[in-house]
Design a protein around this nucleic acid. Structure first.
Lengths: 230, 230
DNA sequence: CCAAAAGTGTTATAAGTACACCCATGA
DNA sequence: TCATGGGTGTACTTATAACACTTTTGG
């Protein structure tokens, strides 16, 4: 039974590191709960149909703004296309997935059906959306190690301990703040602002503040091996 | 003027290292010459419309087999989607691009309008196909340094000097055979077969033969930095 | 025996990791 | 002055690049 038409949708895996002020920061993904069949009650990635006159990146930004009122997306990149003919019931829909990042200090107002879910405790998810989240997370972890993509997860200025918490939550293992500083400083990815934060309620030395040198995506460590001579 | 329908095409950037026996091996890409307008005479990537009942990977393999009679594709992966509404004249066509690799010892018979072109001497290309080739080449170079993707470019068994020539041509800079051996052997990517090649016409010590340990894609060097403790 | 090609050994360097220790602050 | 958190210094490990040197073959 050939389908009569093929639709194209865009779906965004939007991550934010949340609960930074607690002892338990969490990399979380933005999902909305389906109110209607099919798969009522399952959680879906935000997105929707691509319009005839927009490219996919514009479409993702539009739909995040319109549907979940999210405008603070600091990085957006293509992930993969899911094209199995029967990936969703009904007419064929090809899905192009995107990775989106939101700074940890953004506090977007969300609709009632929309919520942040920690990636290590995902709810039942609609269709093939769960592997999309996994794919996005894998990509994020990899890129944190060889690009400056962290700029998209952090506030404009931050203490190193905050950066450590963000990286730890995102890559799902502990990171040493000292070494993180050295790796990123050597690559020129972060720069000290010269200012310091006030020390916290319980004392402690005030932290120097840093910012990302650039606020657009850049590969900083291209060749793990086999780099060009000289 | 909104388009009435949106088509989906797949396009493949298929690479092979050619002229291995000469002093000048070349990474080349498979292109066909347009016989009709628009852009008659310009060279295009192989591919075509996605059918309603096939996913994209199947579609690429089918079209490479049907249209350019190519069946020896040992690796195929998604690259990016090109979705600008006016990327081609006429009805809107969204293009999903793929990276395909063919072993250097394959000698597929090609149709008359189809030819291999060295990537450093590309002919005038149709539409937005040139940046697609560039993107594919960038991806290939990166993956040669942190994955076992070389298996898809080589014969089943090969001497290290051959492997060096293939890597050099693909990454566009000279590679030391000794160090290449050490890097790939340490990672377990290549294994000696125990056999040796006959020495060449002009003498020389016979080369030990190697093979890739696995013949499917695997990331071998995941963390350039920030790897997990222990 | 000589040229050619392959393979081995050695050194240098760079990038990261781990961790001990010192510093600045609030209560 | 002490607990707390931040910052500095340093030793260790490992991956890799560069390259000189040795081995094995054919003519």
């Amino acid at each position: 039974m050939p389908h009569r038409s093929t639709e194209h949708e865009v779906l965004a895996v939007v991550f934010q590191v949340r609960q930074l002020t607690t002892r338990n920061p969490q990399l979380s993904v933005l999902l909305w709960e389906r109110a209607m069949e099919p798969q009522r009650g399952a959680w879906s990635l935000p997105g929707g149909r691509l319009r005839h006159d927009e490219d996919m990146t514009s479409s993702v930004r539009r739909q995040l703004a319109e549907k979940v009122d999210l405008r603070e997306v600091t990085h957006l990149e293509q992930l993969a296309v899911f094209s199995e003919p029967d990936r969703v019931p009904g007419a064929r829909v090809i899905a192009s997935t995107f990775l989106g990042l939101v700074p940890s200090d953004a506090t977007p107002a969300l609709p009632d059906d929309t919520r942040w879910h920690p990636v290590d405790a995902l709810p039942p998810m609609a269709f093939d959306h769960r592997p999309m989240v996994t794919h996005a997370h894998t990509r994020l972890i990899a890129k944190l190690s060889y690009t400056n993509i962290g700029f998209a997860l952090t506030p404009k200025e931050f203490a190193l301990s905050t950066l450590r918490d963000i990286y730890s939550a995102a890559i799902a293992h502990p990171v040493d703040a000292t070494n993180l500083q050295r790796v990123l400083a050597r690559r020129g990815v972060i720069t000290p602002t010269g200012t310091t934060a006030r020390s916290g309620r319980s004392g402690g030395r005030p932290a120097a503040l840093y910012r990302f040198t650039e606020s657009s995506y850049r590969v900083t460590d291209e060749f793990a091996a086999l780099r060009p001579p000289n």
